[in-house]
């Protein structure tokens, strides 16, 4: 579904991605893990068009999207939920979710999608008129997930969905990642919380120093001895 070929990208003069090759299979949940500075979030920014690759190609369903802007990439069917809280805190929860359908001109279609999203994420209806900034971190994450569905995307990029969440909220958030997946979306997520991220995924990718070091099913990654020693403090199977 998504193929990256020798993608090089960075910020200003600093090269962060140093030739990334990656395949994301349709219908998968692919989790990218790796140490700080590996280029995980930069990779998502490059796919979503916030950064343009300096070289290399990004193919989505056969089309090269490497130099499209974020709006065109959204229209192609890729949506990103960024790492830092991305809700518009002074707007209501419903306004935030409706804005997810900003590119849709037909208001009735936006309303229909909103009703469907509310079914999947009841918090959108329950807290509809509350300011988004008044929600807890976990609730904000759920609303961000809900907003990401407004354009009916094919691929959802999740950047560190567990960041700053307590264990109970973490479970709720990853339950909803499963809901996103079951609704037919392919998911590419970046996680610092390696165990949680890989456990919730079908495939794993390990990045280091701007390159992909290892790919495989989540089981293969979890049991890989070198990766376990380097990044996970022992294999997950031992944990």
């Amino acid at each position: 579904m998504l193929t990256l070929h020798q993608v090089v990208a960075g910020y200003n003069d600093s090269e962060v991605l140093k030739g990334v090759d990656l395949e994301v299979a349709k219908g998968s949940i692919t989790c990218i893990v790796g140490p700080n500075g590996a280029g995980k979030s930069t990779l998502l920014h490059t796919i979503s068009g916030l950064l343009h690759p300096w070289s290399g190609d990004i193919f989505f369903e056969g089309r090269n999207i490497a130099h499209l802007n974020p709006r065109q990439i959204l229209e192609a069917g890729i949506v990103q939920v960024p790492q830092n809280h991305s809700l518009f805190t002074e707007m209501t929860v419903r306004e935030n979710v409706r804005l997810g359908g900003y590119l849709v001109k037909d208001a009735s279609k936006v309303n229909r999608t909103l009703a469907e999203v509310e079914e999947l994420f009841p918090i959108v209806r329950e807290r509809a008129n509350d300011k988004a900034g008044n929600l807890s971190g976990g609730q904000q994450r759920l609303v961000e997930f809900a907003r990401s569905l407004m354009l009916n995307p094919k691929l959802i990029l999740l950047d560190e969905p567990s960041m700053g969440l307590d264990p109970r909220t973490l479970k709720q958030v990853f339950d909803k990642v499963a809901v996103l997946h079951e609704s037919g979306r392919t998911i590419l997520l970046v996680e610092q919380n390696v165990r949680t991220g890989l456990s919730a995924s079908t495939h794993g990718v390990v990045m280091e120093s701007g390159k992909v070091r290892l790919t495989g099913t989540n089981t293969e990654i979890q049991h890989h001895p070198e990766i376990g020693r380097l990044y996970l403090g022992g294999t997950l199977a031992e944990a």
Binding site: L50, P70, R71, L74, S86, L87, F88, M91, Y102, L103
Partner: peptide, 17 residues
């Protein structure tokens, strides 16, 4: 709405189109 969204969070505004 797009002005207010850009005022509140520029990156998030870009990411919703």
């Amino acid at each position: 709405q797009s002005v207010r969204a850009s005022m509140l969070n520029r990156t998030a505004a870009q990411l919703i189109g």
